[in-house]
Structures are given as C-alpha cells and as structure tokens.
Design a protein around this nucleic acid. Structure first.
Length: 317
DNA sequence: GCGTCCAGGTCTACC
DNA sequence: GGTAGACCTGGACGC
C-alpha cells in the first residue's frame, strides 16, 4: 500500500549548498539507501522514524547561493507534532543544513591540493548518515572485502530482509530494522547474506541497537571523541568504522584511501598501505586540523579531476 | 581445473 | 602497549 503525504516543509541551508553533489555524490555514494532515486534535482528516498517507514521526496527549489529545499514526507499514519519536530531535526542534521563552510573554503584556498578540489565541488556537504543502523551495515560489509563483495553483501541484506517503501508513484528499497536482524540466527545471516565472519558482528550490533543503544541524534550531541568511543564499544566496530560513521567525521583511512593519500602527500605509492595509516592520519591532522573529515570527502569525490591535473591515475586503486 | 593469495579491519592471545 | 595471527568468501592469478 502506498504511503500518504503527511508533512511538507521547506529548509533553507546555509549557502553555498549544492543539492545534487550533496545527496548524489560523484563517487557514487547514496544518502540513505542504494535504491533511492535521483532525477531532475529531486531525490526519492526513505528512512525510519521509530519503527515506521517513511518515504521522503526532497527537491531543490533554490540556487547554489540562495538554496532552498522542498521536503515532502510520506507515512502510513499521520505524524504527531513531536514526530514532525524530530524529523525536521534529523533532516537538518543529515543534510548539514546549518553547516557553514566559509572557514573550510578559506583554508582550502591556501592549500596546494585543495584549491582546485573545492572549486570542482563547491557547495558539497560531507557525508552525514540519516540513520545509525544502515551506516553500521555499510562499514561492516566494507571490512576486509573488495567493493564488489561488499556490494553483494549489502544487496543480499536489502533483498532478503529490507522493505519496499511505496510513495509518490515510486518504490524505494530500504534497509532492514535492527529488530528484524536481531531476530535472525547468525547462521542464517552467514548463509543468506554471505556475511562470513561479519554475521556474528552484525547480529550483535542489531541486538545492541534494539536494546537502546544511542541513536545518531544522540551521538551527534555528544562530544565527538565520546561518540567515537561509544561506537567502538560495538562488536566489530574499530577506529576506522567509528570515524567513518561518526556524526562528526574524522579521517577514516582504510587500505584503499591510504594508497590514494600516500600518492597525494608523498607523490609515490607505498608497499605497506595499512602500515602507513598512522603517519597519514598525523599528517592530515597537522595539515588540515578539524577540517580533515571534509578534506577526506572532497578528495575522494574528485579523484578523476585530481588525477587529470596530477597526471597520475588515482582511480585505479 | 586446482591451489594460493589477499581484499576499502577487528579482535584476541600472547609477549 | 604492542603485535602476530585468525577470520568468511570469492575473484584474480599462476601453473
């Protein structure tokens, strides 16, 4: 049954704000689910509020320098005032509506690597996950796997246990709830989603989230270091994963990105990408300080153009 | 066709 | 506190 429109609102992001670059990133990352649809400056996607599925239709009605977003929310039942406020706050946080990038851009203008990158991607907001569980599924499946295999694991989870959200003439496949995954056996997750050793970790995480683990909103208002430490109490979530999904992103280097940043920093490939991670993290912190998470997102979404300018293929890794 | 290696990390045991 | 070694699975590679 199709969901009905239950809330309509407008959001006015701090300029500059490029809607397309922010929710439909050049490197191919989705905002909420891999099955969301993006056409003509409109995003049809989904989310969960409490346990209920929502359809979201986000449309840019402004410009880069005078941005405005029209947001329509579709649900099975009407939303209470409290739910409407909660949803508005979640959308504002996850779209980084109030984030002012002025200081980042000022810093970038003085930086040899970043100067042209921020021109390429002017107005792009960094990754901010609408919900915690899908972000945790992503980082668990990224571990120790080539992208193709990670993608296969996520797809099997979505197809076997996810939900279809029907609204506005569209259907968007959305992630399973923690409760649904928590009810499955580790053996089933291992075989049906081909998760391997990750099945035990995902099962444990689903049970934690089902049992009252802080939400993304709770983590957002915590001290960034405290939020990271909290995430790392989850089984299978280490420093890399916690930094990648933390509401205030760190510099989440893995083997793939370490190879790229070695070439950017030191102009050469490394024989030991994993071993180089601590040094790269220190260099990034010294070089870019609190903006290193933004640098991470901007650079990894601009690899083709950076490669062209440097004469080195950074997309091959 | 078959064996081996290793990938967009994390945990544990051991020193 | 530092660090090998194990961990699912499947594609790449050498033979």
């Amino acid at each position: 049954m199709a969901l009905k429109e239950s809330l309509s609102m407008e959001l006015e992001p701090v300029a500059p704000f490029n809607f397309k670059l922010s929710v439909h990133k050049p490197a191919g990352w989705w905002w909420s689910t891999p099955y969301e649809l993006f056409q003509d400056e409109t995003l049809w996607t989904a989310a969960r509020l409490g346990g209920d599925l929502l359809g979201l239709k986000l449309h840019s009605v402004g410009t880069l320098l005078k941005p405005k977003l029209s947001c329509a929310v579709y649900s099975k039942n009407s939303l209470s005032d409290k739910e409407k406020i909660h949803l508005t706050e979640t959308l504002s946080r996850a779209l980084r509506i109030n984030e002012d990038l002025c200081d980042f851009y000022s810093m970038a203008e003085r930086d040899e690597i970043l100067r042209e990158v921020v021109h390429d991607l002017y107005g792009l907001r960094t990754t901010a996950w609408p919900e915690l569980f899908p972000a945790l599924i992503l980082v668990l499946t990224l571990q120790m796997a080539p992208w193709k295999r990670s993608s296969e694991m996520m797809d099997l989870l979505l197809k076997n246990y996810g939900d279809d959200v029907n609204f506005d003439g569209k259907t968007v496949r959305y992630w399973p709830s923690p409760g649904k995954i928590a009810a499955l056996t580790v053996e089933e997750l291992r075989s049906k989603a081909k998760l391997g050793y990750r099945a035990r970790n995902l099962s444990s995480i689903a049970k934690e989230l089902n049992g009252g683990f802080p939400s993304m909103e709770d983590l957002y208002v915590m001290d960034p270091e405290e939020a990271k430490e909290k995430l790392m109490t989850l089984r299978g979530i280490g420093e890399y994963s916690a930094e990648l999904i933390s509401p205030r992103m760190g510099f989440p280097l893995d083997v793939w990105s370490a190879k790229i940043f070695n070439v950017l920093f030191f102009k050469k490939e490394t024989d030991s990408p994993r071993g180089s991670i601590p040094d790269l993290k220190k260099t990034a912190e010294k070089h870019w300080g609190e903006w290193r998470g933004h640098v991470f997102t901007y650079i990894l979404n601009d690899l083709p153009k950076i490669s062209e300018r440097m004469g080195v293929d950074l997309t091959k890794f």
